[in-house]
Write a protein that binds this DNA or RNA. Sequence first.
DNA 1: GTCTATACTACGATAGAC
DNA 2: GTCTATCGTAGTATAGAC
Lengths: 218, 218
Amino acid sequence: MTKPEPNLAAEIDPVRKRILDAAVVQFSDRGYEGASTRAIAQVAGAAMSSITYQFGGKHGLYLATADHIGDQIAGFMHPRLDAARTAVRNGTLPHVEAVLMILGGMAEMMLDDRSQKWAGFIVREQQEPGEAFDRLYEQVMEPMAELMIELIGVARPDLSGKRLRAIAMSLVGQVIALRAARAAMLRILDIEKLDAAERNLLREALQANVRAVLEMKG
Amino acid sequence: MTKPEPNLAAEIDPVRKRILDAAVVQFSDRGYEGASTRAIAQVAGAAMSSITYQFGGKHGLYLATADHIGDQIAGFMHPRLDAARTAVRNGTLPHVEAVLMILGGMAEMMLDDRSQKWAGFIVREQQEPGEAFDRLYEQVMEPMAELMIELIGVARPDLSGKRLRAIAMSLVGQVIALRAARAAMLRILDIEKLDAAERNLLREALQANVRAVLEMKG
DNA sequence: GTCTATACTACGATAGAC
DNA sequence: GTCTATCGTAGTATAGAC
């Protein structure tokens, strides 16, 4: 051990990561213009100028934040996509069940408290998409959407092309709304906060609706 | 005609309304903190201090903007809700068709270019709801949701209570996502911009899915 | 009721010490 | 690589003329 002992705290949670974690929350809550690099640096316990050094400025930090969010979503979803794809190709999982597995995983994420951190970032980018949206779409949304479309196309051979894609969008929309319309959802369910019972209810409703659509007589 | 002729342009489009129209776009695009009263006043062709005079400050303007958006949505949706309610009570419209009429009206609004102006405002409020969300919910979302729940409850007598509400939320979610996840939707459909053909496709997909759920054997 | 002018605070970026 | 100090700009609010 001739090398000097590194600062452990910094090693485990380096400035770059602390800044990104703070940026996710600030950009999500206040938007690009509303979030301040001062506040982000302060929450991260770093100097404002570290943002310039690490990311080249506010805009660079914003793009890096999109990638950071994408990493978190991909870390959860990609294993599930791979499992569904593999099981279907092995013939051990019916196509409808694979769709339910993917949408169920997505719903689990949308219903989890941890997705609140980044939800604001994504819904803002959906309204006025820029380079940050491109990165998020390619990293996490596209692989999910294309697999879903493939599976639904087998379950519903009466559909193809844009009709198939429109049906897929509609089904995924039910899951997206669990986050994007969270406040309205809570009011409709007449609750203050989601607990396990309501999470199950929403997952069951989603499952029932998706089955009704996919097992429908074309 | 002894009274002095009023300024016609100001009468038709008074400062207050011009400020509100500008505020909808600015708050929608940049969020509360990101939108500046300077920019709003400039777009409205008014002095910044008119905002203080008319609305008491930035926060007051924000709340008035929520009401202004609510007025526009209510102007479109309330006649449709009334028509659906009346026709169902007269027995001239089946419950399932009434649900489709309401969701179809909502989809028409979400797919119309004009709803882009205020969509950002609402999705932001959904993520971090405040007084502005309360006003929007009570003015336009609640009447729509409660009528939908009543109608779905008749079409699907096997459902009640929170199960019924969860199914209703899931169905409405398909429509909400047409705006809230607009950028992803365009990518999934592989288009740059919605035209009449895709609007119809999305409306048909919605209709088919809702029918599959409501006409399902409980 | 609407304007101009101004006070005060907070923003992003950067220079330079360590 | 991270810090402190500082520059120029843009934010909200308000006072006071008309």
